Computed example of a mutant assay.
Amino acid sequence: MGTRHASTDGLASVGASVLRSALATNILWIGALKFKQYEVENDEPLVTSSPLFSSLRKRLGAQRLNRLIGVTEIAVGSLIAAKPFAPRAAAIGSVAAAGMFLTTLSFLATTPEARQQGQGVFSLSQLGQFLLKDTVLLGAALVTAGDSLRVARQR
Rank of each mutant, 00 (worst) to 15 (best):
H5Y: 15
A141R: 04
P45F: 05
Q116R: 10
V136C: 06
D147C: 00
I69N: 08
A75Y: 03
V14A: 14
F107P: 01
P51M: 01
V40I: 10
T8M: 07
M100H: 01
V40F: 11
K34P: 09
A22D: 10
F35D: 07
I69T: 14
F107A: 03
F53E: 08
A140G: 03
S17T: 15
L105H: 01
D147G: 08
L137K: 01
G118R: 02
K58L: 10
E41C: 06
W29E: 09
S50E: 10
L28F: 05
F35Q: 07
V151C: 00
L108S: 00
R64W: 14
Q63K: 15
Q129S: 12
S125N: 10
L132Q: 12
L19M: 08
P87F: 03
E113K: 03
Q126Y: 09
L68S: 12
L138Q: 02
S7T: 12
S21R: 13
S17P: 10
V40R: 11
S50D: 14
I92S: 05
V121Q: 07
Q116F: 00
S148V: 05
L127S: 06
L102P: 00
E39F: 04
A62S: 15
Q116H: 09
G10D: 06
V143D: 06
G61Q: 07
V76W: 01
L23C: 09
W29C: 09
T25S: 08
G118N: 06
A98Y: 00
T3V: 12
A90T: 07
E113R: 04
F101Y: 04
G2W: 14
T25M: 01
S54H: 12
R4W: 12
E44Y: 09
M100N: 02
V40C: 09
A89D: 05
I69D: 07
K83G: 13
V18Q: 04
L11N: 11
S49L: 04
L132C: 10
T135R: 02
L11T: 14
K34M: 09
M100Q: 02
G70C: 12
L137I: 02
T110C: 00
P45T: 05
G146S: 09
V76C: 01
L28N: 08
